[in-house]
Structures are given as structure tokens and as C-alpha cells.
Design a protein around this nucleic acid. Structure first.
Lengths: 350, 350
DNA sequence: GTGAAAGCGCTAACAT
DNA sequence: ATGTTAGCGCTTTCAC
């Protein structure tokens, strides 16, 4: 491994000069031609700084920890992590991801990160939920991604659930649907999403002079019972537009439509949230899928976190709100949805 | 931050003694009661070793790099990464994941890892494919997960595609199906999986005295055309059993069955590979899903890699081959599938 | 402008 | 059985 010392000897200067030059602190301190010579030998020897040594000395390490308590095996995880990683890279950071099944494991992993001096974290729940921030993270710069802090202490990047519901419903209205159903979920799990999307649904109906009809809201859990409930919805209300909470719900609608000989995209219109690959591959030509902005949430969370730890404003990411034109209902492109930054007083020790 | 020096002063011994004790190298070198005292003060002060300093000194860092060239946004990524991370944790390592869209970005990220002295890597393609190992990884200990090295130089953990095909088909035979179709994919993409599964399908038919019928093999791409092809398969061959390459293919079969009033689990039987969440949530009661062993591949890959860098055999993981009893066809449990270790001479510099 | 020197927290060879 | 010492590669005063 090439060290500064070697460069210094080879160039006939001291290590401190090399350090100055290689860290671009030579402006007006080191003569230009010496600087040039140093840079040349560094290049020539293929010098790579030893990040360990630097971090040991400076007591800061450009790595952010990405922590999630749930197993990160959900299909969503990848997008968030990738987004966070891309933002981190662009700002000169690495991302190190830890997770575990239980709080104890997570804490153990976080401790391992802290031993490396990692002191800034993203906490993610892998689906917008109310979470309790682990104690071991509470005293560090922290940003939530796709999660809501029970105690409301940290900045959080969440999907704009209301807008999702509002835009999806509006789209169905503009597509000419007269009778728009909402196929949602029973509350216990994703309560935030369910509530927000339903509100958006109602608001959109309201803003377009439509009456809200309780009977068109069909909250279901899964499997046989869900299928029956949706069948019932078809039979009783004859909806011609469906706003579906997620892929599973969309599938129930598809199954029922197929059984009744109704063609999606012709007899009925469907807008569904979530973009598992299977849906994109199979339903795409007929279904307008609204993809949750997982990548963007990750990206934005890392941006925000780094802006906190570096005490500076960072050029904002390409605004996800700008990335979200919803195409015509028969369009094939999956739609990126919005996310919002919930600003909180962030804990920022000294 | 508490340092060894502080512990030394507090206990009235030297730092080296503290180091010895805290690294469990005190056996017969440090008097028992001194050791006890040292441990007590360490505990009391809440000492945490500084991993940076240690790694700088020892020139080794217990972190392994998980590199993937494709965007790690596929639903599969999470499982592999989680498996690798769990194995890493159990062996005292951290896992740091990098990826990028193109080779240049990946190389940049790998370089960043190397600056921290990270010198052991897992390379993963996020779906068993022939890949070219980036030059920057070729001279380091490396294990492939869910990928096949074009030049065949490194140990690799891959799904056992043949067994997947064989077992799925056997299961359909044992369920009493007379006419078993294979709904596969057109080759260009996942060529390894397609070939292996088809071979397994043929071998199972063969071993059970069934004739292979070309017309029952239906390789399709996606969307409308695929749907028509499967409809054609239904109409011409009237299969009563379906082995599906993945979720999308399974969906085509479901869609056609629904249109024809055939009940899955009664009139026809379906075994499908891949376990996207949507399938598990919706099809599960009727469909036998074979989940690819992503978690296990990641786990095993990390195990293998660490055994290489530490020059020691590691207690083997719970063998994924043992985890894979396929339940009866009407069972609800998704099935974990096998993976295999392809042993290669691993590159192990110095 | 440049270099000498100290030290981040730790490990390990060498003294005692 | 314990302490002294010399670094690992880097940054950062402080002299000159």
C-alpha cells in the first residue's frame, strides 16, 4: 500500500506538505510546482488514502448507518436502500446497512457501527408505520425513511398518502368512471397509509362534486374472504372504477373481473398502488400502477441526514414531486408517487 | 469515549495489560485477580473498543463487501443481503453493500471499500446469470451468490435449478396430474434457470415413465402475447398440471383458468417458482409456491467467504438441502428450494 | 512556504 | 507476570 510517507520521500518534501496538497489545502501555502510534483507522484504510485487512519485521526467517518428493525426482506427494502446509497455516494459517504429480527439484535449491530465511530443513522421500517426509535439511536443525528416516529422527534420522509389517494381517485374520475370503489385494507397493519389514502379518496370525490358512498369502500384482509368481499362489491355496487390499496387488492379485482367477463381497461378501470415486479410484468398494459417512492425516500433521507451532520444545506434532490406526472389511465408506465419531508427538531448533539 | 488508557490508569496497570485482558489473551500471562479488576473497570466505564484504531494497527477489518452491479432493487435482493448479513454477524463481521448501475460506478464504490482495508467480497447478480467479475475484485477472496462466473474462477452459490424442476414436476405427478405443462420463459434472460428447470422437468417425467411432449412446453415472454400462448396451451392440450417458471407465468395460468371456469386446486394443479409477496398473499391457498433460497444463498456465501479469509472451516450453516421438504400440493406453506455450492479454486492472494 | 513533531487508540515485540 | 516502547497512516499545530 502506498503511503504519504513514500510520496514525500520520492518527491523530496515532508509528509505534511503531501497531506496539505492531497487534501486540497495547499492554496497559497504550497508552491504551485511542488504541489504539482506531489500530485504527479501520487498519481504515478497509484496512491489511495488510508481511510482508517484518516478517520482515526479526525474522529469522523463518512459512513452512515441504515438501520431497520424488520427483516429487510420486503420487496420495498431494495429501493429505499438503493436510494440512500446513491445519495450517500454522491456526497462522498458509504452506507452500511444493518437489521435484525428483534430489538436486541438491532442494538448489537448498532453498537458494532458505533465502534467504528459511525454516528449518523437512517431508520426505516420498510412500510410506513408508527415505530418506536431504539434507545441506542435516540441521541444521534437520525432521519426516518418510510416510517413515523411514535414520539415525533425526528425528521421523517414518508409517502404522501393523502396525495396518493387523491390523485388516484382523480385519475379515475377524469377517465370517466361514474362509480369508484376503494379496495383498502383492514386497519391494524398499515394504518397510516390506509387512513391517508382513504382521506385522499374522499377529498377527491368531494372536490369533484361526487357523493361519498360508504358501500363502495371495501376493506379486506386476504385470501378467500377478501375475494368474496370483492365479489360482493361487484355484485351489489357495479363499480366501474377501482382504487386499490396494493397489488393483492388489485388482484382480487382482476380475478373477479375475469370471472364475470369484464375487461379491465374497457369495462372497468383500475388504479393500484405498489409496483411489485409481477404486477408490472403482467398487469401493466391495463393497470395504472402507482409505485411508492421508495427510492426517493431513501435518497432524500440520506440527503437530509448528511445536511444535518455537515451543518449545511445540500442542493436538494431532484424533487420527487416533480417526477410524478400521472400518465393517462391507459398508459403503460408505472407512476412514481410523491413523498413528503416531515420536519422535526432533529437531535443534533453538540 | 472510554479508552484503554483510562482503564489502565483507573486500575493501576499498563495499557498492554488491559489490551491483553480485553482481548482474552491473558490466560497464564496476567494474574487472575488483575484480569478481573481490569474487566470490572472496563464494564464499569462502559468501555467500547475503537474498531478503527484496532483495524489500523492490525491491518485487518472484519467487514465484508457485498457488491452487485445491477440495481439492488429487485425483490430478491433483500433476502440475499439479509442472509449474508446474518451469517456475517454470527461470525463477528459487518456487511457493507455497494451497487451501481454501471461498471464504473461499481468500481468507484469498491475502491472506497478498499480504502478502508476491506479485502473480501461477495458478488451477486440478483438472479442467476452469467456475469463477468469486475477486474477490481478479481484479486481478492470472492464468493458469488446467485450468479455464475463466466470464467469459472470463484466459488459460487447458486440455486439448484435442476432440482427445482425435478421436484416441482414430481410433486405434480404425485398429485395425480396426467398432463403436465411447463410454462417457462424465452431464453435470452435467465438462461441458466430456464435450462436447468426444463431439464429437471424432463428428467422427472422420464423417471416416472411419462413421455415428454414438446407441445406441453410453453415458453413465453410477457403480457398479451404470453396470455394468448397460455390460452392456446389450455385449448389444445388441456393440461391438468402446470409447472410455472415464475409468478408472472403462474398468473397467466390463473387468468386463463378463471376465464374458463377452471378451479385451481380442483380442476388443475399449479406449482410456481418465486415467492413475491403478492403471490403468497393471494394465491397461497391454491398454489404451491417454490421460493428460491435467496436468504440461504446469501448466508452460505458469507459463510464460505469468511471460511476462506480466516483459513478455517466454519461450522456449516443449517443445510438448505435439509430445509426443503416440499409439502403436499394443497399445502399453504411456500417451499424453500435448494441451493448448491459450486466449488472453484478461490483466489486467495498471499 | 515548508518541515518537525505530537498524537488519534490500539497491538505486539521486547524488556524487565 | 507486567511494563515500556514503537509504530499503524494520517492530520494538525507550531516553529522556522
Amino acid at each position: 500500500m502506498v503511503t504519504m510517507k513514500q510520496i514525500a520521500e520520492r518527491t523530496g518534501v515532508s509528509v505534511s506538505t503531501v497531506s496539505l496538497v492531497l487534501n486540497h489545502r495547499d492554496e497559497g501555502r504550497v508552491k504551485a510546482d511542488i504541489a504539482r510534483k506531489v500530485r504527479a507522484t501520487a498519481q504515478e504510485l497509484g496512491y489511495q488514502p488510508n481511510a482508517l487512519a484518516r478517520s482515526l485521526r479526525t474522529n469522523k467517518i463518512p459512513i452512515i448507518g441504515f438501520v431497520s428493525e424488520e427483516v429487510a426482506t420486503t420487496p420495498y427494502a431494495g429501493g429505499i436502500i438503493q436510494g440512500a446509497q446513491d445519495a450517500a455516494r454522491e456526497l462522498g459517504y458509504l452506507l452500511i446497512t444493518v437489521s435484525g429480527d428483534d430489538a436486541a439484535t438491532v442494538e448489537q449491530e448498532v453498537l458494532a457501527l458505533k465502534r467504528y465511530g459511525i454516528d449518523a443513522f437512517i431508520y426505516s421500517a420498510m412500510s410506513n408505520r408508527v415505530v418506536t426509535i431504539p434507545q441506542c439511536l435516540a441521541d444521534y443525528p437520525l432521519v426516518l425513511a418510510d416510517a413515523t416516529d411514535r414520539d415525533n422527534r425526528f425528521p421523517a420522509i414518508e409517502p404522501d398518502e393523502f396525495r396518493i389517494g387523491y390523485d388516484a381517485t382523480t385519475r379515475l374520475i377524469e377517465a370517466g368512471c361514474a362509480n369508484i370503489a376503494y379496495v383498502g385494507c383492514t386497519t391494524p397493519g398499515p394504518i397510516i397509509a390506509q387512513r391517508g389514502r382513504l382521506e385522499g379518496y374522499r377529498a377527491a370525490l368531494d372536490d369533484h362534486g361526487r357523493e361519498f358512498n360508504e358501500a363502495l369502500v371495501c376493506n379486506v384482509d386476504g385470501n378467500e374472504e377478501a375475494l368474496r368481499a370483492v365479489e360482493h362489491l361487484f355484485a351489489e355496487q357495479h363499480p366501474d372504477g377501482f382504487f386499490c390499496f396494493n397489488d393483492s387488492r388489485a388482484w382480487y379485482v382482476y380475478e373477479c373481473a375475469a370471472r364475470q367477463g369484464l375487461i379491465v381497461g374497457k369495462d372497468i378501470s383500475v388504479v393500484g398502488v405498489d409496483n411489485h415486479r409481477v404486477i408490472a410484468e403482467t398487469f401493466a398494459p391495463q393497470l395504472t400502477t402507482i409505485a411508492l417512492p421508495h427510492y426517493e425516500m431513501g435518497y432524500w433521507a440520506a440527503d437530509k441526514l448528511i445536511s444535518i451532520v455537515e451543518h449545511r444545506d445540500i442542493a436538494p434532490m431532484p424533487n420527487p414531486l416533480m417526477l410524478a406526472p400521472i400518465p393517462p389511465l391507459d398508459g403503460e408506465e408505472p407512476v412514481k408517487m410523491h413523498c413528503v419531508l416531515i420536519e422535526k427538531e432533529s437531535v443534533r448533539p453538540q
